[in-house]
Amino acid sequence: MKIQILTRAYALTIEVSTQETILEIKRKIEHFLGVPISSQTLSIYDWELLDGLDLEDYPIVTEGTKIDLTINDHTPSLETRRQMQITVKFSSRKHNIEIDITETVGSLKEKIHIIDGTPIKQMMLFFSGVEMDEDFRSLSDYGVGEFSEIVVFLKTMSRLVTEPPSRKLGFVVQTSSALFDSTCIPLEMKDSSTI
């Protein structure tokens, strides 16, 4: 016979036999709707149907009966969960960091700086091989979720941002050694060079 399983969002019609247990019906619901058995409560007219009994034990169940499905979700939904854990991996170390689901790339760099001391300007963050290069974008824009691993590469900072113009200096080095017989060596160098 066919019965209807009703939730707030949808109705599911399934084929059952009167010898099927409530638990077997819950398995079918789990298969079709993806709701775990432990989260399901089936009832008719506010009477809960018990897992160990079969439909024969409930004479009110006939062809076309509507059974209410209440989903008891004990895990917090994405809307109520605000925090998630990710791993930030450097070449020689890693940190597990608790972040908010609305975290941006820029705010994650700030957290890494606080935890690890790495300068923000030197960080390049990568997730699944893609550089997260826009600081204003949220981590979820890049697909980062619970237990994701973000790899940190460090940029090398050049000491010479712009080299100032220099002059060439010409001079002669004269040796006074028995080996060189007081040889003169002409040299040309930049005025910014060191000895």
Rank of each mutant, 00 (worst) to 15 (best):
Y10P: 00
Y10S: 12
L12H: 02
T13E: 15
S17G: 02
S17K: 09
S17C: 05
Q19D: 15
Q19N: 15
L23S: 11
E24S: 14
I25H: 06
R27W: 03
K28M: 08
F32E: 13
V35W: 00
I37E: 11
Q40Y: 00
Y45Q: 13
D54M: 04
G64M: 01
T65F: 05
I67L: 04
D68P: 00
L69E: 00
E79V: 05
Q83T: 10
M84A: 03
Q85D: 10
K89S: 08
K89L: 06
K94H: 13
N96M: 11
I101G: 02
G106W: 13
S107Y: 00
K111A: 05
I112L: 03
D116R: 07
G117Y: 02
T118R: 06
P119G: 04
Q122C: 07
M123N: 04
M123D: 02
L125D: 04
S128F: 06
E134K: 15
G143C: 10
E146Y: 07
V152W: 10
F153M: 14
K155L: 05
S158Y: 07
V161F: 08
V161Q: 12
T162A: 08
T162E: 11
R167P: 00
K168I: 09
G170N: 14
Q174Y: 08
S177P: 00
D181A: 09
T183W: 09
P186K: 13
K190E: 15
